[in-house]
Structures are given as C-alpha cells and as structure tokens.
C-alpha cells in the first residue's frame, strides 16, 4: 500500500489522505487472465521513429490528396459561377460594330444601330472642324473641348439620343448646323454639344477606335 502511494505520488500524501487511494483489486473472476494483445500491437521494432514517419506520410498523403481534389473542384465551381455572369457570345457579337468610313462622304452624318441605340457618325468638313475647335468653352452649358470629344477631328462619333428626353435628333439642322431635336427644340453643334434648348448635357461619345483601311470599330 505504501509503495503504491509512493508510485502514484512520489512526494507522498498526508496520512489522513491515504484512504483516498485504494489498490486496484479484482474481487471476482480473479482466475481470468488478461488476454495477450501483443499480436495486434504496432510492431515495437527498434526503429520506431521510421515506422511512425511512414504512418504519418501515408496519413498526410491521403489528406493532401483529397485537399488537392477538393481545391480543384472548388475552383471549377467558382469558375462556373463567375463565368456565368459574363456576357454570352451572341451579346458580345452584337456589342461591337465595324463601319467603313470610306462610304461616308464629307459633310454627311450617317446613322447606325449600335446596342439598340442610334449611332451618329459624322464626316465633318474643315469649316465645321475650325468652328468647333475655336468655340469658347466657357459659354457652353456643358463645357467640353472639341478635342476631348473626337479622336480624329474629321470624324464625330456620338450616340444619337437627345439628353433631354431621349428623342433622336435630326442631322444637319438647327441653329448651329449640327443636330436638332424635333421633340422640344434642343440645338446641338457639329461636335454634339448642347447649345440651346432644354437638354442638360452634350450627346454621349461611345468608346471607339480606328482600325485599318478606314474601318471604325465602335464598342
């Protein structure tokens, strides 16, 4: 008894605490012997660290392998969801138009349909270019220099929607010779800027660029 107490608590317990510890005694079936499990135990070979590493390598290989597959699956799910938000091929095909500028004579404004809206492409004369470039910006309702609205001074590309209530203006009309909206009488100049009438802002310039051989790409 005393030896057991010393085994459990090497510092020794107080005498009045001794009753708390009882030796484990089998009071019945004391003839049953403990089975021998040594056959089922992990091999206690001298190179135990080696065996442990092998076991861990296998465990982590399984964990890592399923993580790899899981990551690939998660990536493809996210990819599917995000790519479903992007525009489909038919929408992208309609989003851009190409215009052959060689077919537009000087001084003419031609209307195209672009993303469901009218698009004005105007081949400006030298006189119009000079007039628009020399306009005093401070007098304008929506001050914007002509050079900010065109990439090539000969070509004006604007969305042909009046900024007042969305009518389509008439080309080569109005007091400034640019565009005139018949609905409520807004006058635009040859740069698409509002000069007179109820419209609050200039007509919108879409994104465009010049391609090869006089091709204009809008969108």
């Amino acid at each position: 008894m005393q030896r057991l107490v010393q085994m459990v608590n090497p510092r020794g317990l107080c005498q009045n605490q001794l009753h708390l510890i009882r030796p484990l005694r089998m009071l019945a079936h004391s003839d049953i012997r403990t089975p021998d499990f040594s056959k089922y135990r992990r091999d206690r070979n001298p190179d135990k660290g080696q065996e442990e590493t092998q076991r861990k390598a296998f465990t982590y290989m399984i964990a890592g392998g399923s993580s790899v597959v899981g990551m690939v699956c998660a990536k493809s799910v996210v990819n599917q969801f995000i790519s479903s938000m992007s525009a489909s091929a038919d929408v992208l095909a309609m989003a851009t138009i190409e215009v052959d500028l060689n077919l537009i004579p000087e001084g003419q404004s031609v209307t195209f349909k672009w993303r469901g809206k009218p698009l004005f492409i105007r081949h400006r004369t030298q006189k119009e270019i000079d007039t628009e470039q020399n306009t005093n910006i401070s007098q304008l309702r929506d001050p914007q220099a002509d050079s900010d609205r065109v990439k090539d001074p000969s070509w004006l590309v604007i969305i042909g929607i009046c900024t007042h209530l969305g009518c389509v203006p008439i080309a080569n009309a109005g007091d400034w010779g640019g565009y005139y909206c018949p609905c409520h009488g807004s006058h635009y100049d040859a740069s698409g800027r509002i000069r007179k009438g109820p419209a609050p802002t200039n007509m919108e310039v879409p994104p465009y660029q010049f391609g090869d051989e006089g091709i204009l790409i809008v969108g």
Binding site: Q50, Q54, A57, G64, V68, M71
Partner: peptide, 24 residues
C-alpha cells in the same frame, strides 16, 4: 521514399499547403 516525402513536403504546415496548391 515515404520518409523523404514526409520530411520534405508534409512536416511543416506551410510546405504541406504549398504542396497541395502546386499539386492542385
């Protein structure tokens, strides 16, 4: 081989995650 793989790739969490990412 198992030892080398474990010590090189799986022992540190950071290298384990790197292995998973590269493996993916």
């Amino acid at each position: 081989l198992g030892n080398t793989v474990y010590n090189l790739l799986f022992k540190k969490t950071s290298s384990f995650m790197l292995t998973v990412a590269v493996g993916a």
